[in-house]
Each structure stands twice: as structure tokens, then as C-alpha cells.
Write a protein that binds this DNA or RNA. Sequence first.
DNA 1: TATTGTTATACTCTATAACTATA
DNA 2: TATAGTTATAGAGTATAACAATA
Lengths: 181, 181
Amino acid sequence: MSSDAARRLAAGTDGDEDRRRGPSRSRSPGEVRTGVSRAEDGLGALVGYNCRRAYLAVLEHSIRHMNEHDLRPTSFSVLSLVHHEPGLNSRQVSKALGVHPPNLVAIIASLETRKLIERRPDPADGRSLGLHPTAEGSRLASRLERVLARAEIAATAMLSDAERETLLALLRRVWSSPRQA
Amino acid sequence: MSSDAARRLAAGTDGDEDRRRGPSRSRSPGEVRTGVSRAEDGLGALVGYNCRRAYLAVLEHSIRHMNEHDLRPTSFSVLSLVHHEPGLNSRQVSKALGVHPPNLVAIIASLETRKLIERRPDPADGRSLGLHPTAEGSRLASRLERVLARAEIAATAMLSDAERETLLALLRRVWSSPRQA
DNA sequence: TATTGTTATACTCTATAACTATA
DNA sequence: TATAGTTATAGAGTATAACAATA
């Protein structure tokens, strides 16, 4: 490590003892000081950036549990959704999860091969195939949901239960609110 | 559309008028009712899932502005970080952003080719190359940060300013808190 | 021995066009 | 004409091993 900037970043946190410090120069004098590296500035001020980092931090705790059952995050999402909403077809799963239809084909085929879900022709629409969890699929979905919920509590142990609920509620509103225009 | 499940999902929201409804059957009787498709159940209860969906929802508003300057999310992150912390080397950027070193090589090379950043040999360490924004790079970073901040406010217009700040603070704590073990 | 920057490479994820069967 | 499922494919993102130069 050679620079001041490096040492400030290393921790990744923005603790109280680190609040007021000199500007990290190497910029021309007279330039506006932007607040260098405080969490409220730059990337730290962006909801998108922080959502992504939080997602990855939480995922790190969860991914192992999914891998133990040979499920990727999206495979698990499909299984869980079909568990809670049996009868959905592929197109509806696509819309609900925001995954493009072609990218669901292999996922659904794999879940079916592993006998976690079944595809049943819709008698009312010859094009549509309803997705239904098998008994084993439902068991796995419920169990993994519980395991992942616990893993997430561990991953977000720095939050109180109330704060975690607040976070969940805010996130849900962000992505599931009807968009304007 | 053929199933009940489909109609319930279509809106993506969980409005009050939709709160109490019968279980979506096609599962064996006597099975525990899991709360089918309410936001608090299944995927909706998972922080990771909601972080990811919120990230993608916000990104949809922001990506256009980055593309206008031929920047991908990670390229912009590097530029913004280097703008606020000039002098960081590639390894430090890697740690700060959680991007693996080999994946930064092309990004940094491109930013340098476009004269948005410069690489200066560290006199104290012959291996290290300090990254510094050019005047144009700093201008672009500041401008894009402002544009993206506004785009995010539009993307999260369903939140009050206070709620947005709360969300940001909670997300930051999730990913930047020191992890246990 | 350890670290910085790098190459090569593989794997995963995401996106688009176009085809078929059905509506 | 439109929609559901699918194929093929391209592009973007992410990951690991290993090397040269330097510490």
C-alpha cells in the first residue's frame, strides 16, 4: 500500500473516527471538494450500486445452500414460485421473475428431469404447459426457503429485525411499484 | 391466461383488496398453507431476491445514461471511484469494488484509451500503477453522478426522500459491515 | 516468498431473432 | 395476427490458474 486513499478504502466502512479528514489531493487547487470517499458521496449515494453490493453480500451466505441442492439462484426462484403458485406456465414465470423466456427453457427442463416439477398440458390452451411442483419439489422449496431465510438473517445480522423488515418493505416497493411512463 | 395464480401475479403488487383469498390448491389437502404469493412469503421474504429486483429496476432507469457515454456499470464505478480517490492502483480498485483483477484490465485500458483516466508509475513501488482521472474524466464522473442520482430519484419516486435515505443507509450497512468469521 | 498487473480461458448470465404449433 | 414454447446464438459478466516483473 502506498497512497492515503488506499488506506482509507481498505476498511470499506466509514466509521465515526474517520469522519473528518483532509481532502485527498493530487487534484488542482481551487477545485471543488466533493467529499471524497464518504459513504454519502459518489457511488455510495447511489441506490442501484448499494442494492447490488448488498445483493452480492447476502448471496455469498446463501449460494452455498443452493449449491448443496444443485440449484442456481434463478432455478431456486422458479421452484419456489411454482411451489407457491402451482399451475403457472413458463411465460407467466418469465414475467413474474423478470427472466427472458429462452433462458427459462433449460432451467425448467432441468427441474423436470430432476422430478422437482412437472409440466401438464393446459386443457384450455394447447400451447400452454402448467408447471406443478412434485411432492419432492415442494419439500425442497419449503426447506430451502427456511434455510435461506436463516442464512439471510446471519448475513444481515448488523440489522435489527425491525430494520430488516423496513429494508424488505422499501425494496419491495422500489421494484414492484407500477412504473410511470 | 388460464389460472388464478396467473391473474394474481400479473399486477406484481400486493394491494389491500387482494389480502385475504383462498389457498391456491392443486396441492394435497392437509398440507400446511404457506401464504401463497403474499409479498411476505417465499421469494418476497428474501432480502437477496428483493435487492436484486430493486437493483434491476433502478438500473433500467440508469443504464441509458451510462450507455450514452459508452460506459457499463462497472466502467462507471471505476471512473467514479478514481475520481473521488485519485491515486488508487488496480488492485485497490479491485478490492473496493469487489471486481476480480483480471476483469479490470480491459476496463481500465479502455478508460485510459479514451483519456478519461491516466496510469502513472508509483515511484515507491515499481509494480504499482496509480490511476488518476483526467480533467475530462473528472468532468464526466461528476456530471454522470448527478444525472444518475436524478435518474434514481425518478426510479424510486414511490419513496419519500426520507425513505430513500433510510433505504440507502440500510443497504450500506448490509454490505459494508465487517462480516463475522 | 509475496504482490501487481496481466494473459488466457472457461463458465455463467442475459439478450435477441426466428421458428412451430396453437389461438 | 398474436401468443407459448423453443432453438440457436451472441454478448456481457464472473471466475480461476499461471506467468513476468518487482518487492
